[in-house]
């Protein structure tokens, strides 16, 4: 193998990598925040006794579960501006795609934890005259919250990985920076290896931290 490795040229571009990392973290953070809010709203709809709330919420979740993320990115970037008659930048489109997608997953995290509690807990509340809402707030949610931690971390982990799709809209995150550096340096081998390692470190650190938080929260 006669290939001459040269990581020096690539690593000299560290400001661009850093900028990309910033872009990745930015859309991840916004989408987590908005996704949790939207996810909670959809979960409420999915567990409602009113069919006109429950059915659309179910379709929403099923749709996102059964279509690839990249389709959402392209749809929000190229198709939505036509329906809604608005201008759409790569950042907005990426955040919209990530938020709506993660909302469907967070919805299932919330719902799954609530449904995992035994029916007796609802009955215990009802038997002393509590309303459904009081039981939910005082009895169900405090217990369900702990069960949400693990799946929540897992979904967030997936969301961070999915941010890489934003590069296909030329949004300046890690992978997009990498393609730019690769084009400048003609060193795809080194560039993509470096970017893979950056992701690995980022996500591995995240999962270590998350596991620690999870352990602290669930073993009180």
């Amino acid at each position: 193998m006669a290939y001459e490795w040269d990581f020096g040229v690539v690593l000299a571009q560290w400001p661009l990598f850093l900028k990309g990392l910033g872009g990745t973290l930015l859309i991840a953070a916004i989408s987590i925040g908005l996704g949790v809010i939207l996810g909670a709203i959809i979960a409420t709809g999915r567990m409602s006794r009113l069919a006109w709330l429950r059915i659309p919420a179910g379709i929403y979740v099923d749709f996102y579960r059964n279509t690839p993320g990249i389709v959402h990115f392209f749809w929000f970037y190229y198709a939505l501006p036509i329906v809604a008659d608005i201008r759409m930048g790569p950042l907005e489109a990426a955040v919209l795609a990530l938020t709506t997608q993660s909302a469907s997953f967070y919805c299932e995290v919330f719902r799954g934890a609530i449904l995992s509690l035994p029916k007796g807990q609802w009955e215990g509340g009802a038997a002393i005259g509590m309303t459904r809402f009081q039981t939910l707030r005082r009895v169900i949610l405090p217990q369900a919250a702990l069960r949400m931690v693990g799946p929540f971390i897992e979904r967030t982990f997936e969301l961070i990985k999915t941010t890489s799709l934003a590069s296909t809209l030329a949004y300046g995150e890690l992978l997009y920076s990498a393609t730019q550096i690769s084009a400048q340096t003609y060193r795809p081998m080194e560039v993509y290896t470096v970017v893979a390692l950056i992701y690995f470190c980022l996500l591995f650190t995240f999962s270590l931290l998350a596991r620690r938080v999870e352990r602290r929260l669930t073993h009180v």
């Binding site: 007796g120 002393i128 005259g129 309303t131 459904r132 009895v139 217990q143």
Partner: peptide
């Protein structure tokens, strides 16, 4: 109505086979 049921349950208490205590 949910309100009626809450009123009834205030006046008619229940003890379950599985206790249904709140573990938290």
């Amino acid at each position: 109505s949910p309100r009626t049921l809450c009123d009834v349950r205030k006046r008619v208490g229940m003890v379950f086979q599985q206790f249904n205590l709140f573990p938290h």
